[in-house]
Design a protein around this nucleic acid. Structure first.
Length: 272
DNA sequence: CGGCAGGCGGTTA
DNA sequence: TAACCGCCTGCC
């Protein structure tokens, strides 16, 4: 086990980070500590008095990994200032989700997670991901009294059948996952949105999520039903007019679209 | 029971 | 290229 610490951290709130819809493998404990896994590292993360503390189940300490994963080197105060200048309507959403950070997640895990997420509820998405990892993923060790597993690599997933995956209860997303795994084995991982859209089961919304969370494409502004709702409520736009919403986001938020989307999404999810 | 959820692929016109 | 429709599953 090793420990990572960072002090003087502002604009950071574990609840906002882990509940704003960008990740599915972290869970809040009764003491407010989050227990989960990222990049093959099971960990406990806590935050108090501007100090981030990460205790992970890996022998060799790797502070760079956690700094990057938690996006600690980015000035979110400045991002919020810039967004506030561009659009006063965002103030309420940014005040509400003040501690959001966009995690820099593993690309393959992001692809798998957001293919599963389509037309699906968060508790079920989480269940599917955990069953998939426990059944077909590589075990990374024991941490706080349980075994932890990575999501299965493309090479593993690509040779499974829909029948193999039946117990995972992925529904029609199972064949998407297998096909996408095959494509990644053949062509390698996608490097941009256009390549993401070629993957089976990846449409505009899922591609935008993967681009934002897995590729660091911070201009990406994923529009789902919740973003449609919030744009309707705060801006009076038509909920299902994705073109109009995307055009507005592009024009107004520009290269900060992904940050704006996260504040808006979290705001409407928690205040509907 | 039908309706729906953090969409997508496939089929039509 | 826009509009439909069916889809696994689980929950209301």
């Amino acid at each position: 086990m090793s420990v990572f610490m960072a002090d003087l951290v502002t604009d950071f709130c574990l609840e906002h980070i882990f509940d704003c819809g960008q990740c599915f493998r972290w869970n809040r404990q009764e003491d407010g500590i989050y227990l989960g896994i990222a990049g093959g590292r099971p960990a406990r993360i806590s935050f108090s008095e501007n100090n981030v503390l990460v205790e992970d189940g890996i022998r060799e300490s790797n502070p760079d990994f956690w700094r990057k994963y938690l996006d600690l080197d980015r000035d979110y105060g400045r991002i919020k200032d810039h967004l506030a200048q561009r659009d006063a309507v965002l103030d309420k959403a940014m005040a509400f989700g003040y501690g959001i950070r966009i995690l820099q997640q593993d690309l393959w895990e992001t692809i798998v997670s957001f293919i599963i997420s389509q037309n699906n509820h968060i508790p079920r998405i989480k269940g599917c991901i955990e069953r998939l990892a426990a059944s077909f993923g590589e075990e990374v060790g024991t941490f706080y009294d349980r075994r932890w597993y990575n999501l299965p690599a493309p090479e593993i997933l690509s040779v499974l059948t829909e029948e193999d995956l039946a117990p995972i209860k992925l529904g029609y997303r199972a064949k998407y996952l297998i096909q996408t795994a095959k494509q990644v084995c053949q062509r390698g991982l996608p490097e941009n949105r256009e390549e993401l859209l070629r993957l089976c089961g990846v449409g505009p919304k899922v591609a935008n999520c993967i681009a934002l969370f897995g590729l660091g494409d911070y201009a990406s502004f994923p529009v789902d039903v919740w973003v449609g709702r919030v744009m309707n409520r705060l801006y009076g736009m038509e909920e299902k007019n994705r073109q109009q919403i995307e055009a507005y986001a592009q024009k107004t938020y520009g290269e900060l679209g992904g940050f704006a989307q996260q504040y808006l999404f979290y705001y409407i999810r928690e205040n509907h």
